[in-house]
Design a protein around this nucleic acid. Structure first.
Lengths: 327, 327
DNA sequence: GTGAAAGCGCTAACAT
DNA sequence: ATGTTAGCGCTTTCAC
């Protein structure tokens, strides 16, 4: 592999001049620039970026922590975050941590060691205090999770309000036994959703049944199994599913149990994934705002990376209810 | 940020000794090792990995080119490839290229400049010759696409056989007007599928209708629109959809057109995605083998990266037909 | 066992 | 406009 040293020697200039040519520095005579470029071509010279990373103390890599890429919502989120990072000239490095604390700490380690210029977290097994501590080690941004930190930038959906709106809608339709599904109830965002669910009940002077709050329901299959189980014995009349996929599985089970949706049972999904359009009936759902979130987030990141300090922000996005058929 | 220089000074040893401690080199006295480790802890010292990358001429990053993360098959593939790379201690760097040649060339550039130790391609707008040329620049592996190169490792499904098996199944069920859907017909893998489709017809002394071969049908929505269009005028009796998502969209349209599936119309999907279990009827589908592919691929990559030279391999995986209901 | 010293490929401050 | 030089943080000979 050739270095600028070789190029310099062959074109009869100094290494600085070669470097200047590489970086489009204005102070190079056209004559030398041309000569250097010719030699570069002739040698098939490609500058070694690693040395640049070393020299400039940055790699241009941005880590993205995602729990599961098999989860359509997170796949979508990973997609838009990668795309935006790439648009800004960064290299998106994706880490699937499967919600595993150790895997996550591995990634933090890389970030601490400067392998990653910044880290975006979309889900974490670390708690508030731990994350606040972490934030001292470099640039950290949180996406999608409703952490209440004032030491990092946070971009997330107004989960509470989203759940609140869905449940109010169900209540207004006369539903009284409303199940609540969560993929991972321990997370701040899911806690917010639950608060919204409860708030809607309180405001309508209704009580909710703790037995209708379900955790670890994440996939089509989970939704299906839950539906099968519930409709053996229970008489719930509505379900706020954590995602359109869960909703789709649940709907399938409801059909098999002979329930008519939305007449006997209402189902509300989440994310407005295209699956919600092809079930029968189509699934009434809440929009996420991943596109906007990702855009704002990477823009904010760019500012931080370029050294502009500003107070940490915490931006909420509003979810919209799309009535399609299942509720 | 502290460097080994600081650690050395504070613990009264040389930089070499600090380095030895960092790398668990055996030739360090217990006494000094302990002293150095204490100072490290005290200083919250973390070694700068970039300098290591520079020194050792490798970054541990593996680039993965994916066309769309919103496409569930590619999301799945990206997921397993990331996971496997991570298992081997590499950093998976994901690039969504949206099938765009320029974006792809950007990634190749990074790889040439040694920002990426290796590159995995799951889809490419470059042709055979261009890729063969590229392969001279470093370590390149192809996954999922049926390139016929002998200059790179290739891991892919036996697409031709998969399509062949599906279509034979349909023919045996008495179907005669079988539509063929592809997301991107120009790609080698889709060309293989088409060959399988044609072969099945030939072997049964049947002709196929070029008008029933559809390109750029990739999403639920595309499948739905195609179904709506076709059943205004056409009388096709089966469809080999490129994916379960397309199949699901198509099925929805078929329902709306009052067609009974699988009585009047048979549908076969691809990938055995969980969506195929929640439609009514469930979608008969072909399995992909992404898990196995990714495992073998990263293992082979590991060998190449560790400098073990062996002939380039080309591994095919067999798809299985899962009969679920729509055909 | 330990330290001194060279050097990875590049950029940028400084001198000219 | 161009060259000289120092140095980024680390590992790895080599000498002792």
């Amino acid at each position: 592999m050739y270095t600028i040293r070789d190029v310099a020697k062959l074109s009869g200039v100094s290494r600085s001049t070669v470097s200047r040519v590489l970086n489009n520095h204005p102070y190079v005579s056209d004559e030398k620039r041309k000569r250097v470029e010719e030699v570069m071509k002739q040698l098939h010279f490609t500058p070694n970026q690693i040395s640049n990373h070393f020299r400039l103390k940055r790699t241009g890599s941005i880590g993205i922590i995602i729990p599961y890429l098999s989860h359509p919502y997170f796949a979508e989120l990973a997609g838009v975050l990668s795309e935006e990072s790439h648009n800004y000239g960064y290299k998106p490095v994706l880490f699937q941590t499967f919600g595993d604390r150790h895997q996550e700490i591995d990634v933090f380690e890389k970030w601490k060691r400067k392998e990653l210029d910044a880290l975006i977290i979309t889900s974490s097994s670390l708690n508030q205090v731990e994350l606040d501590e972490m934030s001292m080690n470099g640039i950290l941004v949180i996406c999608n999770e409703a952490y209440k930190s004032s030491k990092v930038d946070v971009f997330c959906l107004n989960e509470k309000h989203a759940a609140y709106k869905s449940v109010v809608y169900l209540i207004k339709k006369g539903r009284r036994k409303i199940a609540f599904c969560s993929d991972y109830l321990a997370s701040p965002s899911q806690q917010e959703r639950l608060l919204g669910y409860k708030l809607a009940h309180q405001e309508h002077k209704l009580t909710w049944d703790e037995h209708l709050i379900f955790d670890k329901i994440a996939s089509i299959h989970d939704g299906y199994m839950l539906g099968k189980k519930l409709h053996q014995t229970n008489d719930i009349d509505a379900i706020f599913a954590g995602s359109d996929f869960v909703a789709a599985g649940y709907l399938k089970a409801a059909h098999e149990c002979g329930l008519s949706v939305p007449n006997e049972l209402s189902i509300i999904g989440f994310d407005n994934h295209s699956i919600s359009d092809v079930t029968s009936p189509a699934i009434t759902t809440m929009t996420n705002q991943v596109q906007e979130m990702a855009k704002d987030l990477v823009h904010a990141l760019e500012l931080r990376l370029s050294g502009q300090s500003k107070p940490f922000e915490r931006k909420h996005y509003e979810s919209k209810l799309l009535i399609k058929g299942s509720a």
